[in-house]
């Protein structure tokens, strides 16, 4: 009799059936929250696009409810902020571009893993990089850019630096010597602003919501046009490369597995459970999150390593912040 009461006491103390000789049932469900206390989520700053502020706010609230822990957003003003926070373990998860993940992978390897990216309605899981010029520019091709000034987005930008440079090299153009001057604008919207203001002859920025054959509907100039800051008709696209693997949700792999599973499950369920919120956050209708792993970003990882090796062996980016 005493033995049964011992079992009951153990049960009452929260051990479930474990005290009666069976496997612990609740080990994975409660303790990890006490361990984590909060979820730290690194995102890019939203100062240039109000839609992003909505997106982060919605993600924070939604994930906090799903995970059962407060979610604290760490907004960084540049690409490197999220990369370093993730690599150092100061945050638990982040939404970053493929090039950013490649940087993290080079620093800490499998301590950070991709979990989800967007699959668009038509099945693509990528976006594009486009060379934009002003509509009255004499530049009509990449070749016309010889000796001209180019605005990159950021050293860690996939579509605004890494990917187009690799594709230029594939086409026989060495980006470190071909252009007269290169600059880092600091962001995609800033790159379009620099182009609009005449700081450089062309800017290389992300484009999405379509493809080269059908045109694009998302990208910094579209964001700015919706806010009345520019007129889409003022720009012309002269060169497009891609698709580039979409931005990715990553988590630290040394965090509790239930946390990772909940984040992946809750985010994957979002467009189906709450389609209005999905659209409200600027996500495209018909898109959904799909699970990915490191292999999905293998090309970006390879391109980044090659770009760094190229610059170390031969030249430098010769890029500077626009004055």
């Amino acid at each position: 009799m005493r033995r049964w009461f011992t079992c009951f006491a153990v049960f009452a103390l929260g051990w479930g059936v474990a005290g009666c000789g069976q496997r612990p049932a609740a080990t994975a469900s409660a303790g990890w929250r006490a361990e984590m206390k909060q979820v730290r989520f690194a995102v890019r700053g939203a100062e240039s696009d109000p839609t992003m502020a909505t997106l982060w706010s919605v993600y924070r609230d939604y994930l906090s409810k799903a995970i059962g822990l407060p979610v604290k957003l760490y907004e960084s003003s540049d690409y490197n902020g999220a990369i370093q926070a993730l690599s150092s373990g100061q945050v638990d998860m982040a939404l970053i571009a493929g090039g950013g993940y490649a940087n993290v992978d080079a620093q800490v390897g499998d301590k950070v893993a991709p979990i989800l990216t967007i699959r668009q309605a038509e099945g693509s899981m990528g976006y594009y990089s486009a060379l934009l010029v002003k509509k009255d520019s004499p530049i009509h091709s990449l070749a016309d850019m010889k000796g001209r000034s180019l605005g990159y987005v950021d050293f860690n930008s996939t579509s605004g630096y890494l990917y187009p440079r690799a594709k230029m090299r594939e086409q026989g153009i060495e980006p470190d010597t071909f252009f007269g001057k290169t600059s880092f604008a600091g962001g995609h919207v800033q790159a379009v602003m620099g182009l609009e203001n005449g700081q450089f002859d062309a800017a290389i920025v992300e484009e999405g919501g379509g493809d080269p054959a059908h045109g694009f509907t998302t990208g910094p100039q579209f964001t700015m046009a919706r806010r009345g800051l520019v007129d889409l008709k003022d720009f012309r696209t002269v060169w497009v490369v891609g698709p580039i693997p979409n931005a990715v949700f990553v988590t630290r792999t040394d965090r509790p597995q239930p946390f990772i599973d909940i984040v992946r499950g809750a985010m994957a369920a979002l467009p189906y459970d709450q389609p209005d919120i999905w659209r409200e956050t600027g996500q495209k209708d018909g898109g959904a999150y799909a699970a990915v792993d490191r292999g999905f970003y293998a090309e970006v990882i390879k391109l980044r390593a090659a770009d760094i090796a190229q610059r170390r062996s031969g030249g430098s980016a010769k890029a500077s912040k626009p004055s």
Partner: peptide
């Protein structure tokens, strides 16, 4: 419970990997 549902989804959507 939402937690169990999300965990089931999270486990299943990555199972092919």
């Amino acid at each position: 419970p939402d937690e169990l549902r999300f965990r089931l989804i999270g486990i299943h959507v990555a199972m092919h990997i």
